[in-house]
Protein backbone atom coordinates (compact mmCIF):
# COMPACT_ATOMS: atom_id res chain seq x y z
CA UNK A 1 0.00 0.00 0.00
CA UNK A 2 2.78 2.35 1.04
CA UNK A 3 4.80 1.52 -2.10
CA UNK A 4 1.72 2.10 -4.26
CA UNK A 5 1.32 5.58 -2.80
CA UNK A 6 4.99 6.36 -3.39
CA UNK A 7 4.74 5.06 -6.96
CA UNK A 8 1.67 7.19 -7.63
CA UNK A 9 3.68 10.20 -6.46
CA UNK A 10 6.51 9.25 -8.83
CA UNK A 11 4.05 8.85 -11.72
CA UNK A 12 2.71 12.35 -11.00
CA UNK A 13 6.29 13.69 -10.82
CA UNK A 14 7.11 12.14 -14.20
CA UNK A 15 3.84 13.47 -15.69
CA UNK A 16 4.34 17.06 -14.50
CA UNK A 17 8.09 17.41 -14.19
CA UNK A 18 9.56 15.19 -16.90
CA UNK A 19 7.02 14.56 -19.71
CA UNK A 20 6.58 18.25 -20.72
CA UNK A 21 10.35 18.72 -20.93
CA UNK A 22 10.86 15.54 -22.98
CA UNK A 23 7.86 16.35 -25.22
CA UNK A 24 9.12 19.90 -25.82
CA UNK A 25 12.63 18.64 -26.63
CA UNK A 26 11.42 15.92 -29.02
CA UNK A 27 9.10 18.40 -30.76
CA UNK A 28 11.93 20.90 -31.23
CA UNK A 29 14.29 18.13 -32.40
CA UNK A 30 11.81 16.78 -35.00
CA UNK A 31 11.05 20.31 -36.20
CA UNK A 32 14.76 21.08 -36.53
CA UNK A 33 15.22 18.03 -38.79
CA UNK A 34 12.20 18.91 -40.90
CA UNK A 35 10.21 15.82 -39.82
CA UNK A 36 7.31 17.99 -38.63
CA UNK A 37 6.33 21.56 -39.46
CA UNK A 38 3.95 23.22 -41.89
CA UNK A 39 6.34 23.70 -44.81
CA UNK A 40 8.72 20.83 -44.08
CA UNK A 41 8.81 17.84 -46.42
CA UNK A 42 10.61 15.18 -44.39
CA UNK A 43 13.94 14.46 -42.75
CA UNK A 44 16.69 16.87 -43.70
CA UNK A 45 19.84 18.24 -42.14
CA UNK A 46 19.53 21.42 -44.21
CA UNK A 47 18.46 23.60 -41.25
CA UNK A 48 21.28 22.37 -39.04
CA UNK A 49 23.82 22.95 -41.81
CA UNK A 50 22.40 26.42 -42.41
CA UNK A 51 22.56 27.39 -38.72
CA UNK A 52 26.05 25.98 -38.23
CA UNK A 53 27.30 27.66 -41.41
CA UNK A 54 25.81 31.08 -40.63
CA UNK A 55 27.62 31.25 -37.31
CA UNK A 56 24.81 33.32 -35.79
CA UNK A 57 24.25 30.76 -33.03
CA UNK A 58 27.91 30.79 -32.02
CA UNK A 59 28.06 34.59 -32.04
CA UNK A 60 24.87 34.73 -29.98
CA UNK A 61 26.14 32.06 -27.59
CA UNK A 62 29.48 33.81 -27.13
CA UNK A 63 27.72 37.15 -26.62
CA UNK A 64 25.32 35.67 -24.03
CA UNK A 65 28.18 33.78 -22.36
CA UNK A 66 30.32 36.90 -21.98
CA UNK A 67 27.43 39.03 -20.70
CA UNK A 68 26.41 36.37 -18.17
CA UNK A 69 30.04 35.85 -17.10
CA UNK A 70 30.76 39.54 -16.56
CA UNK A 71 27.41 40.11 -14.77
CA UNK A 72 27.94 37.14 -12.43
CA UNK A 73 31.61 37.98 -11.77
CA UNK A 74 30.87 41.63 -10.94
CA UNK A 75 27.78 40.73 -8.86
CA UNK A 76 29.54 38.01 -6.87
CA UNK A 77 32.64 40.17 -6.38
CA UNK A 78 30.56 43.16 -5.30
CA UNK A 79 28.36 41.07 -3.03
CA UNK A 80 31.41 39.51 -1.34
CA UNK A 81 32.88 42.96 -0.74
CA UNK A 82 29.60 44.30 0.67
CA UNK A 83 29.17 41.23 2.89
CA UNK A 84 32.67 41.40 4.34
CA UNK A 85 32.69 45.18 4.80
CA UNK A 86 29.12 45.90 5.95
CA UNK A 87 27.90 42.63 7.48
CA UNK A 88 27.29 43.97 10.98
CA UNK A 89 25.54 47.15 9.82
CA UNK A 90 23.29 45.18 7.44
CA UNK A 91 21.88 43.30 10.41
CA UNK A 92 20.18 46.49 11.68
CA UNK A 93 16.38 46.32 11.52
CA UNK A 94 15.83 49.02 8.86
CA UNK A 95 18.69 47.92 6.59
CA UNK A 96 17.82 44.25 6.92
CA UNK A 97 14.47 45.03 5.25
CA UNK A 98 15.82 47.52 2.70
CA UNK A 99 18.30 44.99 1.27
CA UNK A 100 15.38 42.69 0.46
CA UNK A 101 13.59 45.35 -1.64
CA UNK A 102 15.49 44.76 -4.92
CA UNK A 103 14.11 41.20 -4.90
CA UNK A 104 10.64 42.69 -5.49
CA UNK A 105 11.68 44.14 -8.84
CA UNK A 106 11.19 41.82 -11.84
CA UNK A 107 13.48 41.77 -14.87
CA UNK A 108 11.02 43.58 -17.10
CA UNK A 109 10.79 46.50 -14.64
CA UNK A 110 14.59 46.63 -14.26
CA UNK A 111 14.88 46.77 -18.05
CA UNK A 112 12.26 49.51 -18.30
CA UNK A 113 13.86 51.52 -15.49
CA UNK A 114 17.37 51.23 -17.00
CA UNK A 115 15.95 52.41 -20.31
CA UNK A 116 14.29 55.38 -18.59
CA UNK A 117 17.58 56.39 -16.97
CA UNK A 118 20.14 55.76 -19.69
CA UNK A 119 18.39 56.25 -23.04
CA UNK A 120 19.12 59.33 -25.14
CA UNK A 121 15.98 61.03 -23.84
CA UNK A 122 16.31 59.56 -20.36
CA UNK A 123 16.99 60.99 -16.93
CA UNK A 124 20.79 61.18 -17.23
CA UNK A 125 20.61 62.69 -20.72
CA UNK A 126 18.32 65.45 -19.31
CA UNK A 127 20.66 65.97 -16.40
CA UNK A 128 23.65 66.21 -18.75
CA UNK A 129 21.75 68.78 -20.83
CA UNK A 130 20.90 70.88 -17.77
CA UNK A 131 24.54 70.75 -16.67
CA UNK A 132 25.59 71.93 -20.13
CA UNK A 133 27.51 68.74 -20.99
CA UNK A 134 25.40 68.09 -24.10
CA UNK A 135 23.33 70.41 -26.28
CA UNK A 136 21.08 67.79 -27.88
CA UNK A 137 19.88 64.29 -27.06
CA UNK A 138 21.88 62.59 -29.81
CA UNK A 139 25.14 63.68 -28.16
CA UNK A 140 24.41 61.48 -25.15
CA UNK A 141 26.44 58.23 -25.38
CA UNK A 142 24.74 54.95 -26.38
CA UNK A 143 24.17 53.25 -23.03
CA UNK A 144 21.09 51.21 -23.96
CA UNK A 145 20.70 49.02 -27.08
CA UNK A 146 24.48 49.50 -27.32
CA UNK A 147 27.31 47.36 -28.70
CA UNK A 148 28.95 46.77 -25.32
CA UNK A 149 25.64 45.71 -23.69
CA UNK A 150 26.12 48.29 -20.93
CA UNK A 151 22.38 48.51 -20.24
CA UNK A 152 21.95 44.75 -20.10
CA UNK A 153 24.96 44.31 -17.83
CA UNK A 154 23.84 47.07 -15.47
CA UNK A 155 20.35 45.57 -15.25
CA UNK A 156 21.67 42.07 -14.58
CA UNK A 157 24.07 43.31 -11.90
CA UNK A 158 21.39 45.33 -10.11
CA UNK A 159 19.08 42.31 -10.29
CA UNK A 160 21.37 39.63 -8.92
CA UNK A 161 23.88 41.42 -6.70
CA UNK A 162 21.33 42.03 -3.88
CA UNK A 163 20.43 38.34 -3.99
CA UNK A 164 24.08 37.33 -3.56
CA UNK A 165 24.52 39.79 -0.68
CA UNK A 166 21.61 38.13 1.13
CA UNK A 167 22.95 34.68 0.32
CA UNK A 168 26.47 35.45 1.57
CA UNK A 169 25.12 37.04 4.76
CA UNK A 170 23.15 33.87 5.38
CA UNK A 171 26.11 31.58 4.71
CA UNK A 172 28.35 33.77 6.88
CA UNK A 173 25.98 33.24 9.79
CA UNK A 174 25.20 29.55 9.20
CA UNK A 175 28.81 28.51 8.64
CA UNK A 176 29.89 30.42 11.77
CA UNK A 177 32.59 32.28 9.86
CA UNK A 178 32.67 34.91 12.62
CA UNK A 179 33.73 32.32 15.21
CA UNK A 180 36.25 30.77 12.81
CA UNK A 181 37.75 34.21 12.12
CA UNK A 182 38.13 34.94 15.84
CA UNK A 183 39.80 31.57 16.30
CA UNK A 184 42.19 32.27 13.40
CA UNK A 185 43.02 35.71 14.81
CA UNK A 186 43.74 34.24 18.22
CA UNK A 187 46.14 31.87 16.49
CA UNK A 188 47.97 34.85 15.00
CA UNK A 189 46.32 35.35 11.59
CA UNK A 190 46.01 38.94 10.35
CA UNK A 191 42.86 40.46 8.78
CA UNK A 192 44.04 39.78 5.22
CA UNK A 193 44.77 36.13 5.99
CA UNK A 194 41.37 35.70 7.66
CA UNK A 195 39.65 37.05 4.55
CA UNK A 196 41.75 35.13 2.05
CA UNK A 197 42.03 31.82 3.87
CA UNK A 198 38.74 31.57 5.76
CA UNK A 199 35.89 33.92 4.74
CA UNK A 200 36.27 33.90 0.94
CA UNK A 201 36.96 30.17 0.48
CA UNK A 202 33.99 29.18 2.68
CA UNK A 203 31.57 31.67 1.10
CA UNK A 204 32.52 30.70 -2.45
CA UNK A 205 32.71 26.97 -1.83
CA UNK A 206 29.29 26.82 -0.17
CA UNK A 207 27.58 28.86 -2.89
CA UNK A 208 29.40 27.79 -6.05
CA UNK A 209 26.50 25.72 -7.37
CA UNK A 210 24.14 28.68 -7.02
CA UNK A 211 26.66 30.98 -8.68
CA UNK A 212 26.82 28.67 -11.71
CA UNK A 213 23.02 28.31 -11.66
CA UNK A 214 22.62 32.08 -11.86
CA UNK A 215 25.11 32.16 -14.73
CA UNK A 216 22.88 29.67 -16.58
CA UNK A 217 19.74 31.70 -15.78
CA UNK A 218 21.38 34.82 -17.22
CA UNK A 219 22.49 32.88 -20.29
CA UNK A 220 18.80 32.28 -21.09
CA UNK A 221 17.50 35.68 -19.93
CA UNK A 222 14.81 37.15 -22.16
CA UNK A 223 13.04 40.31 -20.93
CA UNK A 224 16.07 42.51 -20.21
CA UNK A 225 17.91 41.86 -23.53
CA UNK A 226 14.59 42.24 -25.36
CA UNK A 227 14.25 45.80 -24.03
CA UNK A 228 17.91 46.81 -23.85
CA UNK A 229 19.60 44.67 -26.49
CA UNK A 230 20.49 45.26 -30.14
CA UNK A 231 19.27 43.68 -33.36
CA UNK A 232 22.60 41.89 -33.74
CA UNK A 233 24.09 40.10 -31.92
CA UNK A 234 21.17 39.00 -29.77
CA UNK A 235 21.15 36.99 -26.58
CA UNK A 236 20.15 33.32 -27.04
CA UNK A 237 16.50 33.41 -25.91
CA UNK A 238 15.78 36.54 -27.93
CA UNK A 239 17.37 34.96 -31.02
CA UNK A 240 15.40 31.71 -30.60
CA UNK A 241 12.04 33.47 -30.21
CA UNK A 242 12.79 35.86 -33.09
CA UNK A 243 13.47 32.90 -35.41
CA UNK A 244 10.52 30.80 -34.23
CA UNK A 245 8.09 33.71 -34.62
CA UNK A 246 9.25 34.56 -38.15
CA UNK A 247 6.94 34.54 -41.18
CA UNK A 248 9.71 32.83 -43.18
CA UNK A 249 8.83 29.17 -42.54
CA UNK A 250 12.43 27.95 -43.07
CA UNK A 251 13.56 30.25 -40.28
CA UNK A 252 11.16 28.56 -37.83
CA UNK A 253 13.02 25.27 -38.24
CA UNK A 254 16.31 27.10 -37.80
CA UNK A 255 14.92 28.64 -34.61
CA UNK A 256 14.25 25.12 -33.32
CA UNK A 257 17.83 24.10 -34.23
CA UNK A 258 19.09 26.88 -31.94
CA UNK A 259 16.53 25.86 -29.26
CA UNK A 260 17.77 22.24 -29.38
CA UNK A 261 21.41 23.32 -29.11
CA UNK A 262 20.62 25.65 -26.20
CA UNK A 263 18.63 22.90 -24.42
CA UNK A 264 21.50 20.44 -24.88
CA UNK A 265 23.99 22.91 -23.43
CA UNK A 266 21.93 23.74 -20.31
CA UNK A 267 21.01 20.07 -19.82
CA UNK A 268 24.70 19.15 -19.93
CA UNK A 269 25.34 21.91 -17.39
CA UNK A 270 22.55 20.51 -15.17
CA UNK A 271 24.13 17.04 -15.32
CA UNK A 272 27.59 18.40 -14.44
CA UNK A 273 26.17 20.52 -11.61
CA UNK A 274 23.63 18.20 -10.08
CA UNK A 275 24.85 14.72 -10.87
CA UNK A 276 24.42 12.86 -7.57
CA UNK A 277 27.33 13.71 -5.27
CA UNK A 278 27.58 14.06 -1.53
CA UNK A 279 28.17 17.10 0.63
CA UNK A 280 26.24 19.82 -1.21
CA UNK A 281 24.70 22.88 0.40
CA UNK A 282 22.76 25.97 -0.70
CA UNK A 283 21.90 24.45 -4.04
CA UNK A 284 18.68 26.35 -4.51
Amino acid sequence: MKNKRLNFGIILFIAIGVVPFVAAFIYALLYSFGVIGVANKGFTTEFWTSVLASGEFFTSFLYSFLIALVAVAVSVGGALWVTLKFRKRLEQKFLSFIIYLPLAVPGIVTGFFTFQLFSKGGFFARLSYQLGWITEASQFPDLVNDALAFGILLSFITMIMPFFVLLFLNVYKNERIEELSILAQSLGANAKQVTQRISLPILIKKTRVLIVLYFIFLLGAYEVPLILGRESPQMLSVLIIREIKQYDLDKISEGYVVAVMYTLIVSAAAIVLFFPRKGRMYEH
Partner: peptide
Amino acid sequence: TLLAYFPYILAPVVFAACLSFF
Protein backbone atom coordinates in the same frame (compact mmCIF):
# COMPACT_ATOMS: atom_id res chain seq x y z
CA THR B 1 16.20 15.21 -8.49
CA LEU B 2 18.48 15.56 -11.50
CA LEU B 3 15.45 15.11 -13.79
CA ALA B 4 13.65 17.91 -11.92
CA TYR B 5 16.51 20.29 -12.67
CA PHE B 6 16.10 20.09 -16.47
CA PRO B 7 12.86 22.11 -16.73
CA TYR B 8 14.01 24.30 -13.81
CA ILE B 9 17.21 25.38 -15.55
CA LEU B 10 15.76 25.96 -19.05
CA ALA B 11 14.68 29.50 -20.05
CA PRO B 12 10.85 29.55 -19.61
CA VAL B 13 10.34 31.39 -22.89
CA VAL B 14 12.24 28.73 -24.88
CA PHE B 15 10.39 25.98 -23.00
CA ALA B 16 7.07 27.66 -23.86
CA ALA B 17 8.01 28.03 -27.54
CA CYS B 18 8.74 24.30 -27.76
CA LEU B 19 5.57 23.39 -25.84
CA SER B 20 3.21 25.75 -27.69
CA PHE B 21 2.21 23.08 -30.26
CA PHE B 22 0.85 20.83 -27.48
